[in-house]
Simulated scan of single mutants.
Amino acid sequence: MAMSCIPNNELTLEEIPSPKGDLRGWSRFAHTINGYEQMGGFDACADLANSGGAATLTQLRCALFFEARRDRHSGGCSLDEDVIRRLLKEIRLKVEAGEFD
């Protein structure tokens, strides 16, 4: 999937899928950042996502990116909607508050 990266400070709430409802578009949004590049590689991105410890906007977006990659590579068998919804909610809160990192 070709990524069209969006810097944190250019994100708008309209671009971030709602954590309520059917989650349409979450994976596409997740790919607006390259979590592997931002975190310094696959392992670091995986560690962040698996730890559940993402705190900054960049970390939250990287964790969401990793969940999208995990879902794709598992053939849809690893989708954890609760995690996706939590990450989207936290991302929206950061953007709404103007906390771009």
Rank of each mutant, 00 (worst) to 15 (best):
M1D: 09
A2H: 13
A2M: 10
A2P: 04
M3R: 14
S4H: 13
S4T: 13
C5D: 10
I6R: 12
N8K: 11
N8G: 04
N9P: 00
N9K: 13
E10L: 14
E10D: 14
E10Q: 15
E10T: 09
L11K: 03
T12Y: 11
T12H: 09
L13W: 12
E14W: 02
E15Y: 07
E15M: 15
I16N: 00
I16E: 03
S18G: 05
S18W: 05
S18I: 02
P19C: 09
P19E: 10
K20Y: 12
K20M: 04
G21T: 06
G21C: 03
D22L: 12
D22W: 08
D22S: 13
D22I: 09
R24S: 14
G25D: 03
W26L: 06
R28M: 08
F29P: 06
F29M: 05
A30S: 11
N34T: 02
N34E: 07
G35H: 01
Y36F: 15
E37R: 14
M39P: 06
M39Y: 07
G40D: 08
G40Q: 12
D43C: 02
D43E: 15
A44N: 11
C45A: 13
C45W: 05
L48H: 14
L48T: 11
G53L: 02
G53T: 04
G53M: 07
G53Y: 06
A55I: 11
A55K: 15
A55W: 08
A55Y: 09
T56Y: 08
Q59A: 13
C62N: 07
A63M: 01
A63V: 01
A63H: 00
L64Y: 03
L64P: 01
F65P: 01
F66M: 15
A68V: 01
R69N: 04
D71S: 11
R72D: 05
H73I: 05
S74P: 03
S74A: 09
G75C: 10
G75A: 07
G76F: 03
C77F: 03
C77R: 14
C77N: 15
S78W: 07
D80Q: 10
D82Y: 03
V83C: 15
I84D: 08
I84A: 08
R85K: 13
R85H: 06
I91N: 09
I91D: 11
R92G: 02
L93F: 05
K94T: 01
K94L: 04
A97Y: 11
G98Y: 03
F100T: 05
